[in-house]
């Protein structure tokens, strides 16, 4: 492993995996409890359109994806608000149409674009210095905003109606949350890919919730699980020479099952059932 770490691409991959794991997990706890997982999937698939646009315009696809994903996230929020539509229907509209736009743009590109597959399925070992700087800036923004508006996002997640009654700017906070989701998704697509990024938004958060009944602790556990899953997935993929994005997501899924098995609530329930069985048998 030490030999492997001498390579610049591996050092970059490790930093990228850490950023991806941490930020996805951080925002994921809010996403899971606000029931926004499908929006995550929608924005991540929409990023395909943004990436394809970058290829067509010959600009770093991460930059075009940022603008495109934020726009789609806001459109989902706006259509839901004014269009008498449920959120999942709004996501469904943009999910398909932006993917279609991406496919259309790709068909305009002359010649075979191998790089595109790195965006669709992720290739954490192929991250450039510029990509890493863009990822770090986005990650810092997400961390700072969540840190600053923690209590506002907590109330919005726990009880959105109450947040509105107390006078919090709920609409504004909703759009801010959608923007942060878009940033998180864009910074993660190089590591885990457009198709798999939504899994990283959900799995570490869902794993952490199995282990604690405290929201702050759930965030800390989720970030830890996210980073560890990304590191494990990265090294496994490097050693076994297999796809990095898929390995990261499958490692995170394995961690989820371990957490579910170790869940204190589940253990308590098993103990209770054991006591009941013993009482009935005696």
């Amino acid at each position: 492993m030490i030999d492997l770490m001498q390579f610049t691409f591996m050092q970059r991959a490790l930093v990228a995996a850490s950023l991806t794991g941490a930020v996805c997990a951080l925002i994921g706890v809010f996403v899971v409890f606000r029931g926004m997982s499908f929006i995550g999937a929608g924005i991540s698939h929409a990023s395909f359109g943004g990436v394809a646009l970058g290829f067509v315009l010959n600009i770093n696809p991460l930059y075009t994806a940022i603008g495109f994903c934020v726009l789609v996230a806001w459109l989902i929020g706006w259509v839901t608000e004014i269009g008498r539509l449920r959120e999942d229907a709004a996501v469904g509209i943009f999910f398909a149409s932006t993917m279609a736009m991406g496919v259309l743009l790709v068909s305009l590109i002359k010649g075979y674009q191998i790089d595109l597959f790195g965006y669709i399925f992720g290739n954490v070992l192929a991250i450039s210095r510029n990509d890493l700087i863009a990822m770090a800036v986005l990650a810092l923004l997400v961390f700072l905003v969540i840190f600053f508006f923690y209590k506002e996002f907590l109330l919005l997640t726990f009880d959105a109606e109450m947040a509105a009654v107390t006078g919090l700017p709920v609409k504004w906070l909703n759009f801010l949350m959608l923007t942060l989701m878009a940033f998180t998704i864009v910074l993660s697509i190089k590591a885990v890919g457009i198709v798999l990024v939504s899994a990283l938004l959900v799995i570490p958060a869902a794993s952490a919730v199995q282990l604690t009944a405290h929201f702050k602790k759930a965030i800390i556990y989720a970030v830890f699980i996210g980073v560890v899953s990304c590191w494990s997935g990265l090294f496994l993929s490097a050693f076994l020479n297999i796809a990095s994005g898929a390995t990261i997501v499958l490692t995170a899924t394995a961690v989820f099952f371990i957490c579910t098995f170790l869940s204190p609530q589940r253990r308590k329930m098993r103990r209770r059932i054991g006591t009941l069985v013993k009482t009935q048998n005696s």
């Binding site: 508006f149 506002e152 107390t166 604690t212 009944a213 929201f215």
Partner: peptide
């Protein structure tokens, strides 16, 4: 009815959130 009972939050924090706006944004 609209509150998720699996939400990991303590009683004191639920009560504290009632003052979220009064505390000031951020």
């Amino acid at each position: 009815s609209h509150i998720d009972l699996t939400f990991p939050i303590q009683v004191k924090d639920v009560v504290l959130l009632g003052r979220a706006y009064k505390m000031g944004l951020g």
